[in-house]
């Protein structure tokens, strides 16, 4: 009885090692699909980050130094402004985007598809072009100011101060070259990134879960507060990430809509590489700090969504 059992075992052993070999190749074959991407990441993400770190820690002579970081103190206001404006843009995007996402997700699937397409539509037009369009709208002689002039708003305001000798008559509202214009540009450009992830999460909420809440005595406000919003949190976190990160690092929007008067981190970094202030070592150091700040912000955000599916990191 023991002998056949032993031979059976050895036979089984062969079969086992065969499947292991097969599995190994199978595994290898499946994994190999990822290699181009891994290579891409290594070449264009990992190595550049290392280079940035190296630049940040050296001076023009190639000597190791911390000077780039100690010089950073001068730029604290820029850091503050960047974070503040990106924060404002994110809050405004959330306040506008969430109700839109909620409204869309309650429509019929067909209407939803059309509305989502309409939201994506502006993204098919070049980013620069769209921002230039805002310039011509917000300029001192732009569409809005011309409209106000044509209906006599400025004349009316000036007439109120007619008695004041020191008063200089106004010809326009200062719209462009303000913090507001930059935030507007950010919201306009990044709003779809807030709406889409939230909508896609709300749409997936089981309608029976909402019925269950109503069944247990929740009116529609309570259903929203205690069920829909908590269940859509992962979408909100994705949306916040996808708006905040590009907003904090943008330089085109601030450049075009503030003509350099509102300097953000992106502008500062750009200046170190292409401008007259050419200093790639300082630029790298600023980039590195910005990266760290963004990572900290995102991990704090992700804590709120713990237990839910994790939001995208970057």
């Amino acid at each position: 009885m023991s002998k056949p059992a032993a031979s059976l075992r050895s036979e089984k052993g062969i079969v086992d090692s065969w499947t292991t070999v097969k599995e190994f190749f199978e595994h290898f074959r499946k994994q190999s699909f990822a290699y181009p991407y891994v290579l891409w990441m290594a070449l264009f993400v990992v190595i550049p980050i290392i280079l940035v770190a190296v630049y940040a820690l050296t001076n023009a002579d190639g000597k190791f130094t911390f000077d780039n970081f100690s010089g950073m103190i001068d730029y604290v206001p820029v850091f503050g402004r960047s974070l503040w404006l990106a924060f404002l843009a994110t809050v405004v995007s959330l306040l506008i985007g969430y109700p839109v996402a909620l409204a869309i997700s309650r429509m019929s699937p067909k209407t939803q598809r059309i509305l989502i397409m309409l939201i994506m539509l502006p993204m098919w037009i070049n980013f620069l072009l769209r921002t230039y369009a805002w310039m011509s709208i917000l300029e001192n002689t732009g569409l809005i100011n011309r409209f106000f002039a044509s209906i006599g708003v400025f004349d009316w305001i000036n007439s109120l101060h007619a008695a004041d000798a020191n008063y200089t008559p106004i010809t326009h509202f200062q719209l462009i070259n303000t913090n507001g214009a930059v935030v507007l540009g950010m919201v306009y450009n990044y709003l779809p990134f807030m709406i889409l992830p939230i909508q896609s999460v709300i749409v997936k909420i089981d309608p029976f879960v909402i019925e269950a809440a109503e069944d247990l005595g929740a009116d529609s406000a309570t259903v929203f507060r205690k069920v829909i919003f908590p269940l859509s949190l992962s979408g909100v976190i994705s949306g916040i990430t996808m708006v905040f990160v590009p907003a904090v690092s943008t330089f085109v929007i601030s450049k075009l809509l503030s003509n350099g008067t509102v300097m953000l981190l992106g502008d500062l970094i750009e200046m170190q590489f292409t401008g007259a202030a050419y200093n790639p070592h300082l630029g790298s150091a600023i980039s590195l700090i910005m990266m760290v700040i963004v990572i900290i912000c995102m991990s704090v955000m992700n804590r709120f969504g713990e237990g839910e599916e994790q939001a995208v990191m970057m």
């Binding site: 269950a212 929740a218 069920v227």
Partner: peptide, 20 residues
Amino acid sequence: VPPHKRKINTVFQKYALFTH
């Protein structure tokens, strides 16, 4: 009368529990 004002409660087919 809407569901939340009825003295009736429901056990749903697929439970419909609050996953959060």
